[in-house]
Amino acid sequence: MKTSATATDELLRAVVRVVAIGDGEVRVVADQQAACGGCTVAAGCGSRVLASRGAGTTTAVRIDGTLALAIGDLLEVGIDGAALTRAAALFYLLPLLGLAAGAMLAGLLQWSNGPALLAGLAGFAAAFPVCRHLHGTRGAAALRPVFVRRLDRPGACTTGASVIARQL
């Protein structure tokens, strides 16, 4: 059997680049990666190319730390995978459950399509404040990236996956 260095790692890791240095914090951006990974090695399906052209393709996060960093340094940051899964389930699934509940309630009451649509939308909209309340500040804090390590400056390729692969 082969072994995996990250088999028991609970942090989801990403490579980010320092763009600004503040008091006790640095501001970083993450290179937009292709979701499937294929575009990082070849032309692929082009989703990464399209994403890099759009607005908001780079994301800025703040991380704690008083390291001697320079702008352009590459860092590896991680976030709690379990917290991410909980947040994703909360924000993606709960509104849909509200939509389905409203629709099924209308169906059980034998409403026509128009009122049923309104009932479904009401359930969908009502779920978002609930999500926000359940997520709260603790949930937001759990999604805050933590510093893992500083990486050497890479060569030509700057995609996160290839940088990590070189470091391992």
Binding site: A35, C36, A51, V61, L84, A87, C131
Partner: peptide, 19 residues
């Protein structure tokens, strides 16, 4: 919507949305 309600979640999972 995700960016408004949870910017952190959007930053991490936003890469899937174009796909």
């Amino acid at each position: 919507v995700i960016k408004y309600f949870s910017p952190a979640l959007y930053q991490v999972l936003g890469i899937f949305l174009p796909l």
